[in-house]
Simulated assay, not measured.
Amino acid sequence: MTLLISVAFVIVNELVPEMARPVPHLVLDGVLALSFLVLAVRYASLWIGAVMLLQGVQFSLHAYFFVTKLVPGRTYAIVNNLVTWGTLLGILLGTLAVLRATRAARSAPALPR
């Protein structure tokens, strides 16, 4: 989902005039945050919950700049990039943890009945 939303951001940035981009950006951030919410509720996973919260921060950042009509500058770029990298790192670490737990469960001997 993250990859699809990233591609959608690139498409929006290429096809939509700069003044009209905030609304599609908000929609895309909202869709990604909601997809993480669905996954967090479905799997009751702390790492997906953390990623969902980071995506909520991303949505809030875009909403704040949209509502206040501020021009994004250096602070916006830093926060935007840190949250994006935090989200990607959370997905990577969570995926590695799940893979490790799955391997450990497969290699564990079966308990006698």
Score class of each variant (00 low, 15 high):
E18D: 06
M19A: 09
P22T: 02
P22V: 05
V23C: 08
P24R: 11
P24F: 06
H25F: 15
H25Q: 07
L26E: 02
D29E: 08
D29Y: 08
G30K: 01
V31Q: 01
V31M: 01
L32K: 02
L34D: 00
L34I: 07
S35G: 07
S35C: 12
S35M: 11
F36S: 10
L37H: 06
L37Y: 08
V38K: 09
V38Y: 12
L39P: 00
V41G: 01
R42M: 10
R42D: 10
R42I: 00
Y43T: 13
A44Q: 15
S45V: 07
S45W: 10
S45D: 15
S45F: 06
W47A: 05
W47M: 08
W47C: 06
I48M: 04
I48S: 03
G49P: 00
A50H: 04
M52Y: 05
M52V: 02
L54C: 15
Q55C: 10
Q55Y: 04
V57Q: 00
V57A: 07
Q58R: 02
Q58Y: 04
F59C: 04
F59H: 01
S60H: 00
L61K: 05
A63P: 03
A63R: 06
F65I: 04
F66E: 03
V67T: 06
T68A: 13
T68F: 06
T68E: 14
K69M: 12
L70S: 14
L70G: 11
V71R: 15
V71S: 14
P72C: 03
P72A: 03
R74N: 03
T75D: 07
T75V: 07
Y76T: 01
Y76R: 02
Y76F: 08
A77N: 09
A77F: 07
I78H: 09
I78Q: 09
V79H: 04
V79L: 12
V79T: 04
V79A: 09
N81T: 15
L82S: 07
L82C: 11
T84W: 02
W85F: 14
T87W: 12
T87G: 13
T87Q: 15
T87V: 15
T87R: 14
L89W: 12
G90P: 08
G90T: 08
I91P: 11
L92V: 09
L93W: 01
L93A: 02
L93H: 04
G94K: 11
A97Y: 14
A97I: 07
V98N: 14
V98I: 15
V98S: 13
V98R: 15
L99Y: 05
L99V: 03
L99H: 07
R100N: 00
T102W: 14
T102F: 12
A104F: 05
A104Q: 11
A105T: 04
A105S: 11
A105M: 04
R106V: 09
S107W: 05
S107G: 08
S107E: 13
P109D: 10
